[in-house]
Design a protein around this nucleic acid. Structure first.
Length: 433
RNA sequence: GUGCCUGUGGUUCAAUGGUAGAACUCCGCUCUGUGGCAGCGGCGACACGGGUUCGAUCCCCGUCAGGCACCCCA
């Protein structure tokens, strides 16, 4: 047969990765911890669609944010609606909250979720175009800082339970609609005099999003920033009290935090408390890393922005791929997948027919069993059994098939015994004890 | 979107301006009813397109993909 040369083959879309069987242990563990943590802290699960109206994100995230300007996967439906693959989880949840009047479920309402998000970005380490976030939201019930803490706590505990070390919570406040505009003005005022010394990115930020001037890493800009007004000095009374109280809770709980006056989140819907959680360290290969694992903040204006009643809210999300990345860097493993205990070997047509039914008996009895029905030789099948590391092999050959019996072979000792097929499950169970 | 680096079997790596070799994995045989070891064998690759050349996997350009950094963020 002449070989046909493939001149094209499919591969996954840029920035969208497969989670292969070899990685699934991480994901299973994370999902399990997420569910347990969320339930321990009384959060209710919510799942919202992956696709929403583009307007939902435009209005909630802000027209001039990077996400809306250039990172959304937007398309038109056959009906002509402009739709977008969700770039984050909060907007959809708030939409659902308003749509179904979820305030009736009680206030505050604590919700959690996890699922894929989409952003059209340049992929690199720990950054994908399709990625998974797990998040916690607390909606309604007032804007007390204790709710900010109640979002940070489960996120932090979840990371802790996954054995991720060196966690540090960067916190800041970005004020409210009363004090932020004044501060913004002051900031612009200050930077206007230094505009010519700023890097070109900062000149762009100056126009679009002045708060972002605060986290440029350019050394000249950093120099200028030293003298820049700090928002902490310009908070209104309420915001000041709010943040102070928030910090007191952090202290009280002994959570490792760091005041980071440059932390300003990119999305418009945030106000007051903002936070990001990092882990850092040195991998076994000697590579040092500093990973942002989670982030969030208060978003008291979002409900109104979406046409709902004014409702306080706060939340945060974890980047699941980032966690997997951290677990790999830290060489954290969670044990192996449970293996099959029994391997069923068959030789000959009659035996093969009977072995399938026998396999069913084991599955129904809750004994993990494996087989290699496609192989013919006893050797090959024993080898396969050995590779799977089973304790017991069942050999169903022609002779046995005729007498409705089967050989039970202890793989370690090599001791064998022939029993009737209908007694096989019971006999094997006895041995596995 | 920008800059730098990189694309050779499933994986990790070689070699070469005259179309490629190994290790591991996988499959088979030795062993047609008894595994692990060993020996032997098999499947399997130059990302794609164009250019230079008698001839390109190698040199050049483009595309795509990956890595890193910026931007931004999870």
């Amino acid at each position: 047969m002449p070989k046909t040369k493939k001149n094209s083959s499919f591969q996954s879309i840029k920035g969208m990765h497969d989670i292969l069987p070899s990685e699934q242990l991480y994901w299973e563990k994370i999902r399990k911890e997420l569910k347990e943590t969320a339930e321990a802290y009384n959060f209710l699960r919510i799942d919202t669609p992956i696709v929403e109206n583009s307007d939902l994100f435009q209005r909630s995230l802000g027209e001039t944010t990077d996400i809306v300007e250039k990172q959304m996967f937007t398309f038109q439906s056959r009906g002509g609606d402009k739709l977008t693959l969700r770039p984050e989880g909060t907007a959809g949840i708030m939409r659902s909250y308003i749509q179904y009047g979820l305030s009736h479920l009680g206030q505050p309402l604590k919700l959690y979720y996890d699922g894929p998000m989409f952003r059209y970005e340049q992929p690199q380490a720990g950054r994908y175009r399709q990625f998974n976030q797990a998040g916690f939201e607390i909606i309604g019930g007032g804007d007390e800082p204790i709710y900010d803490i109640q979002v940070i706590l489960p996120i932090f505990r979840l990371l802790e339970n996954l054995k991720i070390k060196n966690l540090i919570i960067h916190v800041n406040t970005i004020g409210c609609k009363n004090c932020r505009p004044a501060y913004r003005k002051k900031l612009i005022e200050y930077y206007k005099n230094h505009q010519k010394d700023l890097c070109k990115d900062c000149n762009r930020r100056f126009e679009d999003n002045p708060l972002r001037l605060l986290d440029c890493s350019n050394s000249d800009c950093a120099e200028i920033r030293k003298e820049a007004p700090a928002i902490l000095d310009d908070l209104c009374n309420n915001c000041h009290k709010h943040f102070k109280s928030f910090l007191e809770y952090m202290e009280e709980l002994g959570l490792p935090y760091e005041l980071d006056s440059h932390l300003v989140r990119g999305l418009d819907y945030y106000n007051r408390t903002v936070f990001e959680i990092f882990t850092s360290g040195v991998s076994e290969e000697g590579k040092s890393f500093d990973l942002a694992l989670a982030g969030g903040g208060r978003y008291d204006y979002l409900a109104e922005m979406l046409g709902g009643r004014s409702t306080s809210a706060t939340g945060g999300a974890i980047g699941v791929e980032r966690i997997v990345e951290a677990l790999k860097l830290l060489k954290i493993n969670f044990g192996a997948r449970p293996k099959a205990k029994v391997f069923l070997i068959n030789i000959g047509d009659l035996a093969r027919k009977k072995s399938l039914a026998l396999l069913e008996d084991f599955i129904r009895a809750g004994v993990r069993a494996s087989e290699s029905l496609g192989k013919d030789s006893l050797n090959a099948q024993l080898r396969a059994a050995d590779k799977e590391g089973v304790e017991i092999a069942l050999i169903l050959g022609q002779k046995e098939a005729f007498s409705d019996s089967v050989i039970i072979r202890d793989m370690k000792s090599g001791v064998q015994e022939t029993v009737l097929i209908k007694k096989a499950v019971a006999e094997v169970k006895k041995r596995l004890k």
